[in-house]
């Protein structure tokens, strides 16, 4: 499943892109947002693989740094309110583009993302390291404690936790505890 955020101030543009994406017939989950606040909320709650964003939003410094923080996991396509040259990159679209141009560019981009997410989703199983982190988190340890016990940085712990949440679809510590018990990663007696 490819999860896409469409970020554009214009309702017409958002609806138009949604319609075109829906024609692509690959499983997508689309959410539409229009302001910087909504973008940062949606990045957390939707865990998107792709964001199609108007340059009027992505040029706002806080949005820009938010996007940079997502790294390569989030594929960005930029929407321009002005015309683009004929041979422009597939990652750039203009609101003046015709259907065939848009459909082609978006299809290729979505297909790329789909292929890479499928590989990721096939490796849905937690890695051994992730299991170790999960075990400690499920026992109620803080990121710092986990980091100390596994001799890794807190930054690494946070990134493992992000992956665990993405793979399992469980966000809270108590949810992770339930999962860990169900899968015998920790015992019922380990928690008080």
């Amino acid at each position: 499943m490819v999860r896409i955020i469409i970020a554009d101030p214009s309702y017409l543009v958002r609806k138009g892109l949604s319609t075109i994406l829906n024609e692509l017939k690959c499983v997508t989950q689309i959410s539409e947002v229009s302001t910087p606040d909504e973008i940062s909320d949606a990045i957390i709650s939707e865990m998107p693989n792709m964001m199609i964003i108007n340059t009027s939003l992505s040029s706002i410094p806080e949005v820009d740094s938010l996007i940079k923080k997502q790294g390569t996991e989030l594929n960005i396509i930029s929407i321009f309110n002005s015309p683009l040259p004929n041979n422009s990159s597939e990652k750039l679209i203009s609101i003046l583009d015709g259907k065939s141009v848009l459909l082609n560019k978006l299809r290729n981009q979505v297909k790329n993302v789909q292929q890479s997410t499928q590989q990721q989703e096939n490796s849905e199983e937690l890695s051994d390291r992730e299991k170790e982190v999960l075990q400690k988190v499920a026992l109620g340890k803080t990121n710092k404690e986990v980091a100390n016990e596994l001799f890794i940085s807190t930054h690494t712990v946070i990134s493992h936790r992000k992956n665990i949440t993405r793979k399992l679809g469980i966000k809270t510590v108590s949810g992770l505890t339930v999962y860990a018990i169900l899968n015998q990663i920790i015992g019922m007696d380990d928690i008080s």
Binding site: L168, G169, I170, K171, T172, S174, G175, V178, Y179, L182
Partner: peptide, 15 residues
């Protein structure tokens, strides 16, 4: 809302 989200996934995927 997060816990409701978790409960859903636990019931659908893991129980």
């Amino acid at each position: 809302e997060e816990k409701v989200f978790d409960l859903k996934n636990i019931l659908i995927k893991y129980l």
